[in-house]
Design a protein around this nucleic acid. Sequence first.
RNA 1: GGGCGUGUAGCAUAGCCUGGAUAAUGCACCGGCCUCCUAAGCCGGGGACCGCGGGUUCGAAUCCUGCCGCGCCCGCCA
Length: 578
Amino acid sequence: MRELFDPVAKGLAGVLIDLGLDDVEPKSIVGGATDRSHGDIAIPFHKFAGVLRRPPAEIAEEVAGKLSPYLDKIAYVSSKSGFVNVTATPKWLSSRLVEFCDHPSFGVKADSLRKVVVDYSSPNIAKEMHVGHLRSTVIGDSLVRILEAKGNKVIRENHIGDWGTPFGMLIERLEDLDSSGIDPDEAMSDLGQFYRDARAQFDGDENFRARARARVVSLQTGDEPTLRRWGQLVDISMSHFQEVYVLLNVLLTEDDVMGESKYDHLLPDVVERLQKKGLLESNDGASVIYPGDWLNRDGDPLPLIIKKRDGGYNYATSDLACIIDRVERLQAEDLVYVVGAEQKQHFEMVFASARKSGLIDSRHTTSHVPFGLVLGPGGGKLKSRSGGVVKLLDLLNEAIDRASASVKDRNPDITQEELGRLSRSIGIGAVKYSDLKSDRTKDYVFDWEKMLSFEGETGPYLQYAHARISSILRNDKFQQSKSGLTSFSLAHESEMRLAREILKYPESVDQAAEDLAPHRICKQLHRLSQAFAAFYENCPVLVEDDNTRNERLALCRIAGGILNHGLNLLGIDAPDRM
RNA sequence: GGGCGUGUAGCAUAGCCUGGAUAAUGCACCGGCCUCCUAAGCCGGGGACCGCGGGUUCGAAUCCUGCCGCGCCCGCCA
């Protein structure tokens, strides 16, 4: 609907000059109407009452009269209590809809040609993925799809934790099990248990602890047998991650993995570069950089530690190395990090350091995309029935099982194969939609009943709207060709409402891309689904009258296409039957 | 102590960046609607001192400011 703003602003420019308001930028006073009964656009004139020494209502009335001829055939213009209201004509809506008929992305323009790296998911080797990884993975994946749809070249990066001191104990644990004849795959079949066992042995056995420490040194100095063991750990973990990613239907593959180990060789380089810039300072034996105005508890400047007192590197160093790699090797312009809100300050400090040291400059942007927590029923931490962390794999399988039960309940004759596919689409879609539908910075309570209830603002509701549309198109005996319609009459109120929600889709995608906020798309798709549901009740599609049928079929095709397109941007399937 | 985030009907949220008219949506609640393209739906209804107080403005959920509740962060973990 933003396309309506241009002609309105243009027409308004002349009118404002007539009124003696030459210096007012027309676009600055044109806004979307907040209430449907006020039309599509509202322009308030109260602020000019003082300058013009006239009551707002009178000004608005005059403007409406003068603006109306400019917008002939485009919009109706009226005025009320100091506002000028502009309402698109069916003719204008129709011409816009005709464009959408043949537009493969329904008005979404691929007009942002940036090179973007999106860093998301980031699980740890030798640890099972748990609910804590859900949001980064789901939100990050949706952002990748959205940014790609906007034309950007997007590079996915899965910054897995595959390096550092824990690997000493993990490798030693693996050694021990192997020498007692246990197959590594079997030893690590329960990743969480494997990690906990290693941890327990590390904490309880002094001899083991010493071996683990020695092993870390071997790893970092490139000892071959150690690296082989390390490789085993990585491989087994990776296949577990991939299993989750496939189930979750996210785009991440093994090709997207860029673990911490990959940046290891750049760490001395980071130190050197900062040193050359004269930014490194010695502090209590460590080498640090002071990126800005951050203070510690005592009110002293807070440094970012680049090299620890013991000579080791810190995660800040690794993050800076990452930036070097992304900017110089990958030539990235925009750096996006989908990482929990608790790391906000850390990333701000890293970004500030990167700018200060010239690793990035005015051509680059950095965005930390924080998100809230997934909470349990009581509002506390989400726990499994046994009280531990919820494994992501278990959670996803439960979603699918629950969806399966509902599908079977409703559709007893369904084939096993279709049941499997459908419950996967619905179960995973429900989890993803409930994660994406509200502002990501907020915590949300994980609630099976709500997300799978199939009522209200849920994934299944949107999928159902799509399935009903598909059903209509299937039942169309004439199987109209895809385009050919040159105008829409939009005679029924429900058709008009549907048309408006259709036309608002592209701007919701732009908003989502701009704010890195997928929920903007969720909200618009839900409004579209509601408008479609009303249309579905009030406007039978497969009727005898050719004109009516063709027009309504075209509306269905566009609405269904948008649902498919939009759900895809969220990483959610759009089944044709439910 | 400092910083950041958050607070909107019984519950869950949108709107806040970019100030407009009667605060939107879902759940729950009340009343209607299946000889008709999937009722996982639709139509109608009740329910809100937008955390509290000041300020700016013709106009504040939205901007500024001071409180209050909750959460997170504040150097050798990631």
